[in-house]
Design a protein around this nucleic acid. Sequence first.
DNA 1: CTGTTAACCTGAGTGC
DNA 2: TGCACTCAGGTTAACA
Length: 273
Amino acid sequence: MPELPEVETVRRGVEPHVLGRRIRRAVVREPRLRWPVPEDFARFVEGRRITGTDRRGKYLLLALDTTGDRLIVHLGMSGRLLVLTAPEPLRKHDHLDLELEGGVLLRYHDPRRFGAVLPWPAAQGLHPLMATMGPEPFSADFHGDYLFERSRGKTTAVKSFLMDGSVVVGAGNIYAAESLFRAGIRPTRPAGKLSRGDCARLAEQVRAVLTAAVAQGGTTLRDFAGADGASGYFQQALYVYGREGQPCRVCATPIKLLRLGNRQSCYCPRCQR
DNA sequence: CTGTTAACCTGAGTGC
DNA sequence: TGCACTCAGGTTAACA
């Protein structure tokens, strides 16, 4: 998936096409996503107007009417949300369609089915999926001191810590690796041993990396495409992710690869200590 | 409680 | 061509 910048890119791509349009019909072809699309999904959305788009972490939110009811879309690892303005033949894994007024079709496509499309009635209050989420990286709540306090006593590797959604949302494998490089911190360092200064640099770099990636439309990767099918340009700005064995862009030392929590982690052994 | 691992799925790529 | 194998952007349930 899409990490935060990719989701934000999709949101920006989708918004102008859906804003103010009514959902005429919903077609669920495959309800077995990460969490099943409920039976009453079509009834929940049909006839309602999309009045806003939002994002919380990696969850894309579509506001329905002015009731506070929303639609949650999560892209998992391989999900896409396509805006179609002309008929397109159905492809494998086109699991769900929202047919909007004006001949616009929102199509959810997800080969691995790790994503989700869920109704979120206002009456439900805070959605369970978002209840334990940490702060948005761009919010005032996310800063060095916050990271410092949260990491005290933690023995887990700082990269795993950073990818924990209850600490901060939006940093997945790519951007965690990139933030750590820019902050000069080795991914294996125990989170609890970071200094206040480490945490300040890390928080700053998380924000900087995500900001830059959003500005570039995300990173081009196998399964990611923006809502219009285009892909992002952040790939060329990566320092470590996917660059195992290649020279560090700062010091030319070969980038190393290790496995952390079943996930590939690239780092520069010289720039990151 | 904390921290790590396996599992959910399919497709792409690699090596034989 | 085909088969066996590994790996992939996320999240969480189950374990130690």
